[in-house]
Amino acid sequence: MANPEHNIEESINLKFFLTMFEPVRFELVKHLADGKERSIKEIAENFTQDRSVISRHLEQLQTQGIVIKEKRSRHTFYTLDCELITQHIEKTAKSLRDLMNVHTKN
């Protein structure tokens, strides 16, 4: 019989979810959830952390594709990639549903 833990690990992109649900980063995700593009300055104004800390969190989100980063001249703008987030959640839900159905039928 296959190792269920191994299958679960394959079903979940853990790094994606850990990145998105880290408390400060999740607040950033919620802040950008309206779909509006914002500069780092506009984003940082809404948080108590230093702008450099916010920038590092946004970089982490960007490495997982959660936010889209666009540089224009000296300014950097961020938008939330709602489609990618939805795809990850739906894929994970389907994978887990399939995995659980397989294991509950045995």
Rank of each mutant, 00 (worst) to 15 (best):
M1W: 10
A2M: 09
N3W: 05
N3G: 00
N3V: 11
H6G: 00
H6Y: 13
N7L: 15
E10G: 09
S11G: 14
S11A: 15
N13C: 01
L14W: 12
K15P: 06
F16D: 04
L18F: 13
T19M: 08
M20P: 01
F21M: 14
E22R: 09
P23D: 05
P23C: 06
V24K: 04
V24H: 03
R25D: 10
F26Q: 06
F26L: 10
L28I: 04
V29W: 01
K30V: 10
H31D: 02
L32Y: 08
D34C: 03
D34P: 13
G35F: 00
K36W: 02
E37L: 03
R38S: 05
S39Q: 01
I43A: 02
A44Q: 00
E45C: 00
N46H: 05
N46D: 03
F47A: 07
F47W: 02
T48S: 07
T48G: 08
T48Y: 00
Q49H: 09
D50H: 09
R51G: 01
S52G: 06
V53L: 08
I54D: 01
S55L: 03
S55Q: 11
R56T: 11
R56A: 05
L58F: 13
E59Q: 08
E59V: 00
Q60Y: 14
L61G: 06
Q62R: 07
T63I: 04
Q64R: 07
I68C: 08
K69M: 08
E70N: 11
K71Q: 14
R72M: 05
S73Q: 14
S73T: 10
L80E: 04
L80Q: 08
D81M: 03
C82V: 09
C82P: 04
E83A: 07
I85N: 03
T86H: 03
Q87F: 02
H88F: 06
H88C: 12
E90T: 15
E90D: 13
K91W: 08
A93Y: 11
A93I: 15
K94V: 10
S95G: 10
L96P: 00
R97W: 13
R97P: 12
R97S: 15
V102F: 14
N106S: 12
